[in-house]
Amino acid sequence: MRGMNFQKLLVPVGAIVLLGLAWRSGGWGGVALAGGVIVMFLLLHFNRVMQVLKRAADRPIGYVASAVMLNAKLKKGATLMHVIAMTRALGELRSPKDEQPELYRWTDTGGSYVDAVFNSGKLQSWTLTRPEAEPDAASPSEEENPAA
């Protein structure tokens, strides 16, 4: 948890240091330039988040094209926003609301699903579950196949 607090403080402290250095080297003109860079960074980040959520809004909650491919692409420490961008769908929340850790599920059309555990927005673990293989009724048995 201590590392998470450090990460949350890193960006604002970095912005303040950047503004301080800009003031020292260029006065108000430097502050204006550094402020513009900071605002541009924030706008680009906001735009990316909006694009990810816009794409996810067009798909059913908890749907993914292939749970097996999602399982292969996941990496520990990935953010929830990154996973939503990969699946292009919001995950189905399976844990109580506003409690940590959070459990989300993405299911494909074949019935396979990935359960992903997020703690403070970072992927901790995940499991792929495939449906039980049913006996294939369409395949001919030895009695039905006279060529055997």
Results as ranks from 00 to 15, higher is better:
119 N>Q: 14
116 A>V: 03
128 L>A: 08
135 P>V: 13
124 Q>N: 10
106 W>M: 07
133 A>L: 14
108 D>H: 03
108 D>W: 01
125 S>P: 05
119 N>E: 12
109 T>C: 12
116 A>Y: 00
120 S>L: 15
110 G>M: 12
107 T>P: 08
121 G>A: 09
114 V>A: 01
124 Q>A: 10
108 D>Y: 03
125 S>N: 15
123 L>N: 03
135 P>G: 12
135 P>Y: 04
117 V>G: 01
128 L>G: 04
123 L>Y: 05
115 D>T: 06
112 S>T: 07
134 E>Y: 09
111 G>S: 08
105 R>Y: 10
119 N>L: 11
107 T>K: 14
121 G>I: 04
129 T>A: 10
124 Q>T: 13
125 S>A: 15
117 V>L: 08
116 A>C: 07
127 T>M: 13
106 W>A: 03
125 S>K: 11
109 T>W: 10
129 T>L: 06
112 S>E: 04
116 A>N: 01
131 P>V: 07
132 E>N: 08
132 E>K: 08
110 G>K: 14
115 D>K: 00
112 S>D: 05
118 F>C: 01
116 A>I: 00
105 R>G: 02
130 R>S: 12
111 G>C: 07
105 R>K: 11
135 P>K: 01
134 E>A: 12
134 E>N: 10
125 S>V: 10
112 S>K: 06
113 Y>L: 07
135 P>E: 14
112 S>H: 04
130 R>F: 09
105 R>E: 03
124 Q>F: 08
129 T>V: 11
109 T>V: 14
115 D>H: 01
115 D>G: 02
121 G>S: 09
118 F>V: 02
129 T>P: 02
118 F>Y: 06
108 D>K: 01
